[in-house]
């Protein structure tokens, strides 16, 4: 499926690779690469939320940064359908094209305590992108900032205050207002609720859903928390050591996972119900080193189902049923339980 006007594909990621060189020695020679994102392909349809899950170091944040071009991908293509219907290959975008891209894609950061400049007022924080892009000034700017704050349920009367006067949840609202000030169509949210308290987390998740409905936003929602991802996403992609291991509609991936790693992730989440015991045996071992991954399937040293072929040959990402992709040699044979509902 490529980008056309009809099928609604907003973002088409093809064989995206982001490799970081490892430099050593006096002459800083390159001795290897950390394959943070390694041959990842998927598409985002306008108006959907794709949840991207994985453990720390699996490359999910790097992927988000490469999509928004905070990082230049090593290889592969990221095609994006602009507002005017034209397609932009963001990997090659430069200068004005990149500036145009900023009207289309924005980023929400993880830590609301670190992502707002403590010396800027809320007004300046939200107005900054508008000023930089010369989109508004004077009264129009003030109106726009007020409108953005109202959108995230903050009182516009607070614009002269500094970030320290706000709680974590309120700060994350400011971060969302800043991202939405440019009227983006695609928002990449990198762990937007993981730094927040449980009681506040629900407020922000509800807000993001409301905003998506009102503004027809597309979200790439990066998180390590499966219960949050399940709640907010239409589709879920699971990453392990730089590779996509499974991609499926939310309900499908939680009830009928096809990759043993997805199953292990689901079992590892402690269930908030003392009557239901969590997964039988936790996954042994640790996440593989992306600079020195094991041969064959990266998951094979930890996989309870690993066979000889898994230690030799890396499985491709294949469609096991319509819309459900999994990269496991035994996707079709394995009977995985999913999560009890």
């Amino acid at each position: 499926m490529t980008i056309t006007k009809e099928n609604g594909v907003l973002l088409d990621i093809k064989n995206l690779k982001v490799h970081f060189p490892i430099k050593k020695g006096l002459w800083q020679g390159t001795v290897g690469h950390v394959k943070a994102v390694d041959d990842v392909s998927f598409q985002l349809v306008e108006g959907e939320t794709l949840g991207l899950v994985g453990e720390s170091g699996c490359g999910k944040t790097t992927l988000g940064k490469a999509v928004i071009r905070a990082l230049k991908p090593t290889d592969g293509d990221v095609d994006y359908q602009m507002r005017d219907g034209s397609t932009l290959n963001t990997r090659e975008a430069e200068g004005q094209q990149l500036r145009d891209l900023r009207h289309e894609m924005q980023f929400i950061f993880q830590d609301p305590f670190a992502s707002l400049n403590p010396r800027m007022t809320v007004f300046d924080i939200v107005a900054d992108p508008l000023r930089l892009n010369r989109l508004a000034s004077g009264k129009a700017l003030e109106d726009k900032v007020g409108e953005m704050l109202q959108l995230v349920s903050l009182s516009p009367s607070l614009t002269r205050r500094y970030p320290h006067a706000f709680s974590g949840g309120q700060r994350q609202r400011i971060g969302i207002a800043r991202a939405l000030a440019m009227d983006p169509r695609l928002v990449i949210a990198d762990e937007p609720v993981s730094a927040l308290d449980v009681s506040v987390q629900a407020q922000i998740l509800n807000l993001m859903q409301d905003l998506q409905e009102r503004l027809n936003l597309t979200f790439l929602f990066i998180s390590h928390d499966l219960s949050v991802v399940q709640y907010i996403s239409h589709r879920v992609a699971v990453m392990y050591v730089g590779k996509l291991v499974e991609l499926a509609p939310t309900e499908e991936i939680f009830t009928n996972p096809k990759h043993p790693y997805t199953q292990a992730l689901l079992e590892a989440v402690p269930v908030p119900n003392p009557a239901i015991a969590s997964g039988a045996t936790p996954l042994a071992g640790e996440v593989a080193d992306p600079a020195n991954p094991p041969a064959g399937c990266y998951f094979n040293p930890r996989c309870p189902f690993a066979q000889d072929i898994c230690r030799v040959e890396a499985p491709p990402l294949e469609e096991v049923s319509p819309g459900h992709f999994s990269s496991c040699h035994f996707s079709k044979e394995l009977e995985l339980a999913g999560v009890a509902s």
Binding site: G168, V200, A202, Q203, L205, S227, Q230, Y231, T250
Partner: peptide, 27 residues
């Protein structure tokens, strides 16, 4: 409220909303 506000694996459907506790923990 705390128990109601947590998203639960396998239970919450996409259509439902979380019951958030209003406001935040005061300083």
């Amino acid at each position: 409220e705390l128990l109601r506000s947590i998203p639960r694996l396998g239970r919450t459907k996409q259509t439902s909303r979380l019951t958030a506790i209003k406001g935040s923990v005061p300083p």
